[in-house]
Design a binder for these strands. Structure first.
Length: 591
RNA sequence: GGGGUGGUAGUUCAGUUGGUUAGAACGCCGGCCUGUCACGCCGGAGGCCGCGGGUUCGAGUCCCGUCCACCCCGCCA
């Protein structure tokens, strides 16, 4: 049934024709978007990546009309004819091509199509399940077309930017060596070496550092990374990083390179962003926002109000403070509309997040003061509390007491929930921050040892190197995250370029010299041959594009994403393999 | 591994306290229609109510189990 393309040559895309083309001959190739059959007159919207153009058939040409009547949604057609200006009443202002149409002289039916499981032509929501199974159809829809197009343009801006600044894009291996620290590796069995495995890279970390040792000076790669961990809306087992490394870099060197890049990237969506970005110490982020990736859009920082309770008549809080705990809270402005029921709902919410309780105090629009602890504290103390935290009329103060880290994390969650409900997380507001001064190490209670907060190659802050042995938990790292709207869109560090220091860090991490040699020997060797100071960053391209498109999941900016169970419903990966393949790989499946 | 939400026509959904023949819209199929553009009008087909078990005279609805999807916690240096 399908006809061949033959000599049919596209003259215009389906988004190209304008009044100045009137009278020209045109050949359009594309999909049937919609058919409007009026009997003796039939309109087809023909669609390709560039747009939609109306083509017209009328009954004067009986054979042509008969053929046109067979057209259905998503058939692939070629239409040749001449461009005609539409009369004033029939112009479609919704289409860029709406002032013209094509009077078809020749219709080629390049392919038929089964009725698609969902409509390509409109934006009606379809379950993600179905969309992923028929991803090739979903990709035809406007949303993914726009997202893929934007991602392409962003990628091009990034490549041009780094090229203009003297970076070389260099590919690093996909089949690489498994390293013990960090996320779970995806493993690839070696056929040639029975019982041995490659790992897919979690990031090209060591290779890019070795490129610095190799004198590359400035490296960039838009590369795929793999981590076998559980998925989230912003996490896929394979994801794309803009991987960057610079020799002779200080943190400011990296910030100064990335901030103008972000300006160019946001120009793609027509937005001007302010630089430099705010810098915030990790400790401040945790204390004021309860998160190492604070969303700065809603304001409402968490305040430490412990001192107000040290000698308070409210015994519960006083005891918590006396025992090294804290009292923290944040102010919801314009909360006059919150009913008693809604405030009680907040109390329940806090409890479900793990709080023992939630204390609130508010100043009504008329200035009247109420509080859940009015009796215990007394009105003057509540007034003082509202004063100290800056609660204006109509404002609501939410307070949690307990262990400092827990209290802040909990308030951070509550703050985001409140902000979301108040509509304060506007997707087209962009609040950037560099989170700096991360701790170098974190104590792993399960393994009873220190682990790297970032990775083992991160340089300690030079002022803190002397404290490595005595108080390792206090040592700050020369590490930084780029945070945008509560999303970590990048992270990096200045690396250790001194082999002795690197050995010292491994020893702190309880990685023996033998173990280090086994896992990172090649890298430790390389470090000894004149390693320049260097550092870099990796940007999460998927997350960045999700924010640019206003999507809440990175799956919307990935052509072929996987489900939360790491399955591709289209290709049905992963799947069992032929026993012969297993034998060649010296593998047996344990059941 | 844990918690939450959902699964009914091709799609998106409704379905009362457990009650007799499970509905709507869009899509699909057929017919009519010469200026539509979400065309319109008329007619029609289409259902393992995710799957398995149980309670009951009777289950889309209640119970148990299970699978799938999404969100969150753990995990993600």
């Amino acid at each position: 049934m399908a006809e061949q393309l033959g000599d049919l040559t596209r003259t215009h895309t389906c988004g190209a024709l304008r009044p100045e083309d009137v009278g020209a001959d045109a050949v359009l190739l594309g999909w049937v978007h919609r058919v409007r059959d009026l009997g003796g007159l039939l309109f087809v919207d023909i669609r390709d990546r560039a747009g939609i153009t109306q083509i017209v058939f009328d009954k004067d040409d009986e054979a042509l009309m008969a053929k046109a009547k067979r057209l259905r949604s998503e058939f692939v057609i070629g239409a040749a004819g001449h461009v005609r200006r539409r009369s004033a009443e029939t112009v479609n202002p919704k289409l860029p091509t709406g002032e013209v149409e094509i009077v078809v002289r020749r219709l080629v039916l390049l392919n038929e199509a089964k009725t698609p499981p969902f409509t390509i032509a409109d934006e009606t929501p379809v379950s993600e399940d179905v969309r992923l199974k028929y991803r090739y159809l979903d990709l035809r829809r406007a949303q993914l077309q726009a997202n893929m197009g934007l991602r392409h343009r962003v990628t091009m801006v990034i490549r041009r930017y780094f090229d203009a600044h003297g970076f070389w894009e260099i590919e690093t291996p996909i089949l690489t060596k498994s390293t013990p620290e960090g996320a779970r590796d995806y493993l690839v069995p070696s056929r040639v070496h029975p019982g041995e495995f490659y790992a897919l890279p979690q990031s090209p970390q060591l290779f890019k550092q070795i490129l610095m040792i190799g004198g590359v000076d400035r490296y960039v790669q838009i590369c795929r990374c793999f981590r076998d961990e559980d998925l989230r809306a912003d996490r896929q087992p394979e994801f794309t990083q803009v991987d960057v490394e610079m020799s002779f870099a200080r943190p400011e060197t990296i910030f100064g390179m990335i901030e103008p890049l972000m300006r160019e990237v946001f120009a793609v969506i027509g937005r001007e962003i302010a630089t430099p970005f705010q810098r915030m110490a990790y400790a401040d982020a945790m204390a004021r926002y309860g998160s190492d990736k604070p969303d700065l859009r809603p304001g409402m920082p968490i305040q430490d109000i412990r001192e107000l309770f040290r000698a308070s008549s409210f015994r519960v809080f006083r005891d918590i403070v006396a025992n090294g705990g804290t009292v923290r809270g944040f102010v919801v402005p314009d909360a006059a509309g919150y009913s008693g029921t809604e405030v009680r709902a907040l109390e329940d919410e806090a409890k479900s997040l793990g709080a023992t309780g939630l204390v609130w105090a508010r100043r009504a629009a008329d200035g009247a003061i109420t509080s859940s602890v009015m009796k215990a504290l007394g009105e003057p103390a509540v007034a003082q509390l509202l004063e100290a935290t800056g609660v204006q009329p109509g404002g609501l103060l939410l307070v949690v007491a307990g262990e400092p880290d827990t209290a802040s994390k909990l308030l951070g969650q509550l703050r985001l929930n409140v902000a979301r409900r108040k509509g304060l997380l506007k997707p087209d507001d962009y609040a950037f921050a560099w989170v700096v001064d991360f701790p170098l190490l974190a104590w792993d209670a399960g393994e009873q040892r220190y682990v790297s907060m970032h990775h083992p190659f991160t340089s300690p802050h030079e002022d803190d190197i002397g404290r490595l042995e005595a108080e390792p938990a206090e040592v700050r790292a020369k590490a930084y995250d780029l945070v945008l709207n509560g999303s970590e869109i990048g992270g990096g560090s200045i690396r250790i370029h001194d082999a002795d220091l690197q050995r010292q860090i491994f020893s702190l991490l309880n990685i023996s010299a033998d173990e280090a040699k086994l896992r990172f020997g090649f890298f430790l060797d390389a470090l000894e041959y004149g390693t320049p100071p260097h550092g870099g960053i990796a940007l999460g391209l998927d997350r960045l594009c999700a924010i640019l498109t206003g999507e809440s999941s990175i799956r919307e900016v990935i052509a072929f994403p996987k489900t939360a169970a790491a399955v591709d419903p289209m290709s049905d990966a992963p799947s069992p393999v032929d026993p012969k393949q297993l034998r060649e790989l010296h593998l047996a499946i344990k059941r």
